[in-house]
Simulated assay, not measured.
Amino acid sequence: MGIWVGGALLVGWLTTIVVSINNEPPGGASNLNALEEHTITALHTQDADALQLLFTEDSVADEYAANYLNRLGKTAAKNARGTVKKSSGASFIVVDGPGTCTAWQVVETEKRWYLDGTPPVLNTLCSHSEKRR
Rank of each mutant, 00 (worst) to 15 (best):
Q52Y: 02
W113F: 12
S127E: 08
A29W: 03
K74Y: 03
G89K: 05
A61Y: 15
E24T: 13
G12N: 08
E130V: 12
A34P: 10
P120L: 01
T75I: 09
S59R: 10
T100H: 15
A66R: 15
E63W: 14
A8D: 04
D116K: 09
R71G: 11
L72P: 03
A65C: 04
P98N: 12
Y64I: 04
H128D: 14
L69G: 02
A34N: 08
L51I: 04
A90V: 07
H44Q: 08
I17N: 13
F55I: 04
V94Y: 00
W13E: 05
G82H: 09
L43D: 00
N31C: 07
A103D: 02
A65W: 02
T75E: 14
D116G: 00
G28K: 01
V18W: 06
N123I: 11
T83Y: 14
G99N: 07
G99F: 04
S20N: 06
G28S: 04
A90Y: 09
Y64M: 03
E57N: 09
V95I: 09
S20L: 11
L10Y: 13
I93E: 06
G97A: 06
V60T: 00
A50W: 01
R112P: 05
Q105R: 15
C126W: 07
G6W: 08
A8E: 09
T124F: 10
S127F: 07
E57R: 14
A50Y: 08
A8Y: 07
V60I: 01
I17S: 15
G89P: 06
L53N: 12
K74V: 01
D116Q: 12
G89E: 01
E63G: 10
G6A: 06
E37I: 07
L51T: 00
T56R: 07
L54V: 01
A76T: 04
S30L: 14
F55H: 02
A103F: 04
V121M: 13
E110C: 12
N31K: 11
I40R: 10
A48F: 01
V11L: 13
S87P: 03
S87Q: 10
Q52L: 05
R112A: 02
L35H: 03
P120M: 07
P26I: 14
Y68P: 00
P98F: 03
T102P: 05
S87M: 04
L125F: 06
G97F: 02
D96F: 01
A29I: 05
G12C: 08
G97L: 00
D49W: 15
H38T: 11
H128E: 06
S88L: 13
K85Y: 08
T16P: 11
N33E: 11
E130I: 10
W13C: 12
C126E: 03
D62R: 10
V18D: 08
E36L: 08
H44A: 04
D47N: 10
W13V: 05
L69P: 02
V107E: 09
A65V: 05
P25K: 14
L43G: 00
G28N: 09
H38M: 15
T83R: 14
K111D: 11
S88T: 11
S59A: 03
P120N: 01
V60E: 00
A29F: 01
G28M: 03
L14G: 13
V106Y: 02
W104E: 10
P98Y: 06
T75Y: 15
L14V: 09
W104F: 13
E37S: 14
H38D: 11
V107G: 02
V84Y: 07
D49L: 11
